[in-house]
Computed example of a mutant assay.
Amino acid sequence: MKFKSILVSVMLLCLFSTAALAQVMEVGVNAGASGYMGDLNPKDPFDFSGAAFGAFVKGNLDPYWAIGIHYNHGKIKDNDATSSNPDFRSRNLNFSTPLNELSLQVDFNFFDYFAGGGTKRFSPFIFAGIGGVLFNPRATYQGQEYELKYYKTEGKDYRNYALSIPYGAGVKYRISDHWALLSQIGYRTVHTDYLDDVGDKYPLVSAYGRIDAEHPLYINLSNPSQLPHNWNPGGQRGDYRKNDTYFFLHIGISYTFTSDKCFTF
Score class of each variant (00 low, 15 high):
residue 157 D to H: 07
residue 137 P to D: 08
residue 168 G to Q: 08
residue 137 P to G: 04
residue 140 T to D: 10
residue 155 G to R: 01
residue 100 N to P: 04
residue 166 P to F: 03
residue 119 T to M: 04
residue 145 E to P: 01
residue 177 D to E: 12
residue 107 D to H: 08
residue 147 E to M: 02
residue 129 G to A: 06
residue 108 F to Q: 03
residue 145 E to A: 15
residue 126 I to F: 05
residue 135 F to D: 12
residue 167 Y to N: 08
residue 144 Q to E: 15
residue 129 G to M: 05
residue 114 F to T: 04
residue 110 F to G: 06
residue 105 Q to F: 01
residue 186 G to T: 07
residue 125 F to A: 06
residue 183 S to M: 15
residue 135 F to V: 13
residue 143 G to H: 11
residue 169 A to S: 04
residue 158 Y to N: 02
residue 178 H to S: 14
residue 142 Q to K: 15
residue 103 S to F: 12
residue 107 D to T: 05
residue 137 P to T: 07
residue 186 G to D: 09
residue 127 F to N: 14
residue 139 A to G: 14
residue 108 F to W: 09
residue 175 I to P: 03
residue 130 I to T: 02
residue 175 I to G: 03
residue 175 I to W: 07
residue 156 K to D: 07
residue 122 F to N: 09
residue 142 Q to N: 15
residue 179 W to A: 12
residue 168 G to Y: 04
residue 147 E to P: 00
residue 164 S to T: 14
residue 170 G to I: 00
residue 177 D to S: 13
residue 170 G to T: 01
residue 107 D to C: 05
residue 186 G to W: 00
residue 173 Y to A: 07
residue 115 A to D: 11
residue 111 F to N: 13
residue 182 L to D: 06
residue 107 D to M: 02
residue 111 F to R: 15
residue 184 Q to K: 10
residue 149 K to G: 10
residue 136 N to C: 02
residue 149 K to W: 12
residue 143 G to L: 12
residue 179 W to M: 14
residue 173 Y to M: 10
residue 165 I to S: 02
residue 130 I to K: 00
residue 135 F to A: 15
residue 119 T to V: 05
residue 157 D to K: 13
residue 126 I to R: 00
residue 107 D to I: 01
residue 102 L to C: 07
residue 102 L to S: 09
residue 109 N to C: 10
residue 145 E to I: 13
residue 110 F to N: 07
residue 166 P to E: 04
residue 121 R to G: 07
residue 109 N to I: 03
residue 106 V to A: 14
residue 173 Y to W: 12
residue 175 I to T: 12
residue 147 E to K: 10
residue 172 K to G: 06
residue 135 F to R: 09
residue 133 V to H: 00
residue 149 K to N: 14
residue 124 P to V: 01
residue 104 L to S: 04
